[in-house]
Simulated assay, not measured.
Amino acid sequence: MVEIRKVTDGFAVAPQIGPDDVEAIAAAGYKTIVANRPDGEGGITQPRMGAIRTKAEELGLAFVAIPFSGAPTPEILERIGAALAEAPSPVLAYCRTGTRSITAWALTHAGQGMGEEIVDTAAGAGYDLSSLRALL
């Protein structure tokens, strides 16, 4: 079973999911899955986005692929911000550990004067984003 870490009422993150996890994600009430992990990053045993997308769509969930490695670029942040604004909520984003997804979520709010709140919210979900404080 996948470990879902609720960040806000509308957003959660998880480490790598597989097609078999999608039913539990749907049962937990999530409406959209955002994939932030590139296919093949973890080798041949990593579940592929296509299989996860197929299962999600079979269950009526939206699926958005925004894979990236390393720090998110401004383009990636723009795409993630748009997905979060437009996708049915709540949204579950996944990557290898969840850190990349929550970092991208946090940076979509940069410059909005919510830095401490974002760092505290991420900490509540088990992620230390204190190193991003100056960017937020």
Rank of each mutant, 00 (worst) to 15 (best):
G115W: 09
L132W: 01
E23P: 06
T97C: 02
L132Q: 01
G111C: 04
R133A: 11
A83P: 03
G40P: 03
I52L: 11
A82P: 05
P38R: 00
L135Q: 14
L77P: 01
V7Q: 04
G81M: 06
E86W: 01
A125G: 03
T54W: 09
F68E: 09
A93G: 07
D120E: 15
S131I: 04
Q46H: 08
G70T: 09
G126V: 04
A134N: 11
M114A: 11
P19Y: 04
F11P: 12
W105P: 05
I17F: 03
A134H: 07
T108D: 03
P15M: 13
V22T: 03
A51Q: 15
K31G: 07
A56I: 09
K6F: 02
G70H: 10
D39H: 03
T103M: 13
A87P: 10
E86Q: 15
V64N: 04
L132R: 01
P67H: 12
A35Q: 11
G111P: 06
R48A: 10
G81I: 07
Q16I: 08
G29V: 06
G98M: 09
V91C: 03
I118F: 01
R53V: 14
E75R: 03
R79H: 09
V7N: 02
R48L: 14
R100V: 14
T103A: 06
A27L: 05
R48V: 13
L84K: 10
G43F: 12
R37A: 00
L129E: 02
L136K: 03
M49Y: 15
T73S: 14
S69E: 13
A87S: 15
L59C: 11
G70R: 10
A71T: 08
M114P: 00
G29K: 04
R53P: 14
G18D: 07
M1W: 03
K55F: 10
T121R: 02
G70A: 12
T97I: 11
I17K: 00
P88V: 11
Q112K: 09
Y94A: 08
A110P: 06
L61C: 05
G111F: 02
I76S: 01
S101R: 10
A93P: 11
V34D: 09
A87W: 05
S89K: 12
I66Q: 09
T97Y: 04
G115K: 08
P90V: 05
G124P: 05
P67N: 10
T8L: 02
A12R: 05
G40V: 05
